[in-house]
Computed example of a mutant assay.
Amino acid sequence: MTSTTGEPVVVVSRRVEAPAKDVFRILADPGRHPDLDGSGMLRGVVLGAVLSGVGDVFVMRMHHARLGDYEMDNHVVEYQPDRRIGWEPRPGRGHPDATGPGGDAWGHRWIFELSPDGAGATVVTEIFDGSRLPEDKRVEVDSGRTWWQTQMASTLERLAELCAPR
């Protein structure tokens, strides 16, 4: 999918058999993110309690084959309990694009939208919004669209498994 301005936005949705409040509880806990990460890049949380609103920051340990080990500083920019949560990652310690504590924002966002779908189910939409990225980064996102969609579908599958009744 592409946004109305022609910038790269990747969107994947899935129905999860759990109420929105249960799904949101997992998404708002950075310590749970490695459990649901479909990319295999998240290694763990460095800093971050359960998210409670816009302005919260959490730091994740990451690994990428090309970049090695590094951190991303994630700034919560959207927060509607049980409905929507989103953060803007910034290159952190060890990332080649980091310019200091907190790094420079590239402007991209990870967003999760939750829509109740009947009793005890939620449609979860994961959005990678690259509309604010610099041109060279937008090209990377657009050229890797299939990879992004596959990783995001895997994330939503893992999320559904984490929310499944035991």
Rank of each mutant, 00 (worst) to 15 (best):
T5S: 09
G6Y: 12
V9I: 05
V9E: 05
V9A: 00
V11L: 05
V12T: 08
S13R: 05
E17F: 02
P19W: 04
A20H: 03
A20Q: 05
K21I: 04
R25L: 09
R25Q: 11
I26W: 03
A28K: 05
R32Q: 06
R32F: 03
H33R: 00
G40R: 02
G40W: 07
R43W: 13
V45S: 00
V45W: 02
L47N: 00
G48V: 06
A49L: 12
L51W: 04
G53I: 05
V54T: 10
D56F: 08
V57R: 05
F58E: 00
M60W: 01
M62G: 01
H63E: 06
H64L: 12
R66F: 08
L67D: 06
D69K: 05
M72W: 04
M72L: 10
N74A: 04
H75E: 06
R83K: 13
R84E: 13
P91L: 07
G92M: 02
P96R: 00
A98S: 14
G100V: 06
G100K: 01
G100Y: 07
D104T: 10
D104G: 07
R109Q: 11
F112G: 02
E113F: 03
G118Y: 15
G118F: 15
A119Y: 14
A121D: 14
V123E: 15
V124L: 14
T125S: 13
F128P: 03
F128R: 01
F128H: 00
F128Q: 00
S131P: 13
R132H: 15
P134Q: 04
K137N: 11
K137R: 15
D142Q: 14
G144V: 13
R145K: 15
W147F: 15
Q149G: 14
T150R: 13
M152I: 15
M152K: 03
A153G: 11
L156C: 04
E157P: 09
E157W: 13
R158M: 06
R158N: 12
L159P: 10
P165G: 07
